[in-house]
Simulated assay, not measured.
Amino acid sequence: MRGRIWRRFLLSLFAAAVLVPLSLVLFYRVVPVPATPLMLLRLAEGYGLSHDWVSYDEIAPVMIRSVIAAEDAKFCQHHGFDWEAINDALDAAEGGGRLRGGSTISQQTAKNVFLWPGRSWVRKGLEAGFTVLIEALWPKRRILEVYLNSVEFGPGVYGVEAAARHHFKKPAAQLSAREAALLAAVLPNPIRFSASKPSAYVNRYAGRIQGRAGDIGPALMPPCPAQF
């Protein structure tokens, strides 16, 4: 009798572990993400919360190209994980270098939307699971839309619409190539760096992003129309 109860409990636990993430991913495939764990954490820390959701078509194509150039050049080719970048990061760490991030936009979206900040193996495992789900159930266009509406661009500033209005007093649809590159340049550390008051480093990095973004087709059509 006791063994049967334990089996039912474990089966229920397993079902919940599968169905809850699956339901969340399916829900956010069509529904705007109202807030993320990081937004709530930063709010509790006193950073405030500015977040305005916009559709993919309300984001300047140059912003989409810039964020791919800065964060994930192989976004259209991979299925959630850039194994070459991960191996390079591990090799650098083993060689005594600084540990670099190898996260794709898909991984960052999974982390930003569904999980808490941190570097534990448990969280990384959950991140990998959510990454597999969103790559399987969302088109690439939706991944970009959710990412650009959820990522942190400054203290208390989330999503490209709030960032464009905060830094440049205009909607995301009207961002110039330079403004888009500056916003993409602060993503590695949006608390430290500012797009509207860029340091020398941010200015240089934005210049490189702007150059690379020009190599990506208009609004990503090409290089990955099949996934859209």
Results as ranks from 00 to 15, higher is better:
183 L>E: 02
170 K>P: 11
152 E>D: 04
147 Y>K: 00
135 E>P: 00
211 G>C: 04
160 V>K: 06
148 L>H: 03
91 D>M: 04
205 Y>Q: 15
90 L>G: 03
144 L>A: 00
100 R>N: 11
177 A>F: 01
159 G>I: 08
180 A>I: 02
88 D>A: 13
172 A>W: 04
207 G>S: 11
183 L>H: 15
105 I>Q: 12
164 A>C: 08
134 I>V: 07
124 K>D: 04
183 L>V: 07
128 A>C: 13
213 A>C: 05
98 R>C: 02
158 Y>W: 05
149 N>I: 09
109 T>A: 10
222 P>R: 01
109 T>H: 06
142 R>M: 00
138 W>D: 09
206 A>I: 08
142 R>A: 00
152 E>V: 03
101 G>A: 14
223 P>V: 10
169 K>T: 15
181 A>C: 10
132 V>L: 15
98 R>M: 06
88 D>K: 13
209 I>M: 07
165 R>V: 09
208 R>P: 12
115 L>V: 09
219 A>W: 12
182 L>R: 01
174 Q>A: 15
170 K>F: 07
182 L>K: 14
116 W>Y: 11
90 L>I: 13
213 A>V: 10
159 G>Y: 02
101 G>T: 10
180 A>T: 00
217 G>P: 01
88 D>C: 08
177 A>C: 01
120 S>W: 10
182 L>N: 06
121 W>G: 11
121 W>A: 14
154 G>I: 10
95 G>A: 07
194 S>V: 00
102 G>E: 02
102 G>Y: 06
179 E>Y: 03
156 G>S: 05
214 G>N: 08
175 L>K: 00
173 A>W: 02
107 Q>N: 03
108 Q>L: 11
197 K>M: 12
197 K>W: 13
137 L>H: 06
106 S>H: 06
158 Y>P: 02
114 F>Q: 09
213 A>P: 07
153 F>G: 03
190 P>C: 11
195 A>Q: 14
213 A>L: 08
123 R>D: 08
150 S>H: 02
111 K>S: 01
125 G>K: 06
128 A>E: 03
195 A>Y: 15
